[in-house]
């Protein structure tokens, strides 16, 4: 059953200097449905594809509100995400209690990255099987971070995680230079276009499978958002006006140049390690 000699314990390095369990955890992130994040000078947005296990089932929650100024989208094990997001909520609340200050987004992301790192080093633990895109706003404006089970966290202009996220990344890399000065509507449209790239052949984005998370002032499609522009999750019918703004794939500029989506790893295959 073992696929590698040095993978039964995450505290043991392989002779190549790698921690196989940690890399498997990163694979767990890639099994989750995709999430996309983008940032402009005024807004940060998240877009995520919700999966359902069948016609009779509801869709899995992909976004969590952490505080008025922070929210996350997840890819991977939802149960691990709940534990981590609860921890983030506690951190946010403790900052409010002790300093009466909304927690700076970078501190929040570092705090979970540090937690994840412990799991890559201590005996008897396993890494988290979930990755986050974190958006938030603080004194230094809107932010977008990626958090991964390896204990790394980076800030991005635009990023995607989860299944087939490479296709979304290709789209984002092509367009990211225009994001900084984008309106919120354009930013969301780019996000939807990027998210669309992660879909399987016959699937489409619709009001049921699309979640949008926003921080920053209200969009023309939104109602009753306080002026501070706190984090909010747009779902169901409220997504429709945003979906309407999408440009059909054949006519979308440059969409044709996007390479076919990378094959998602299936359960039976051996995991391919990067270089």
């Amino acid at each position: 059953m073992f696929r590698n000699t040095y993978d039964s314990d995450n505290t043991v390095f392989s002779p190549q200097g790698r921690l196989h369990q940690v890399e498997y955890a990163l694979e767990a992130v890639k099994q989750g449905s995709a999430a996309v994040g983008l940032r402009s000078k005024t807004h940060s947005v998240l877009l995520a594809l919700k999966r359902s296990t069948g016609e009779l089932a509801s869709y899995q929650q992909k976004m969590f509100r952490i505080d008025d100024h922070v929210g996350i989208a997840i890819a991977g094990l939802t149960s691990d995400a709940r534990v981590l997001s609860n921890f983030m909520r506690q951190q946010a609340m403790s900052s409010k209690m002790v300093f009466n200050r909304p927690i700076p987004v970078n501190r929040l992301v570092s705090s979970i990255a540090d937690k994840a790192q412990v799991n890559t080093q201590e005996y008897g633990r396993r890494p988290y099987g979930v990755g986050f895109l974190v958006i938030g706003q603080d004194n230094s404006g809107p932010h977008l971070y990626e958090f991964s089970p390896s204990g790394n966290s980076y800030e991005y202009y635009a990023m995607s995680i989860g299944a087939r996220s490479q296709s979304a990344k290709t789209y984002l890399e092509k367009h990211y230079e225009s994001f900084a000065d984008s309106s919120l509507e354009d930013l969301v449209r780019h996000g939807l276009h990027a998210l669309r790239e992660t879909l399987q052949q016959d699937k489409e984005l619709n009001v049921n499978n699309t979640s949008i998370g926003i921080v920053g002032p209200a969009s023309v499609h939104e109602k009753a958002v306080p002026p501070a522009g706190p984090f909010r999750i747009v779902e169901n019918e409220a997504v429709e006006p945003f979906l309407q703004t999408m440009i059909a794939k054949d006519t979308a500029t440059g969409a044709g140049a996007v390479p076919p989506a990378a094959a998602a790893a299936t359960g039976d295959e051996d995991v391919q390690m990067a270089g």
Binding site: V98, F99, N100, R101, P104, N106, R107, S110, N139
Partner: peptide, 15 residues
């Protein structure tokens, strides 16, 4: 934390 964020008087008073 090396992120350039320093506690101001309001935060110190609350603490």
């Amino acid at each position: 934390a090396q992120d350039g964020l320093a506690l101001g008087p309001a935060e110190i008073h609350e603490y």
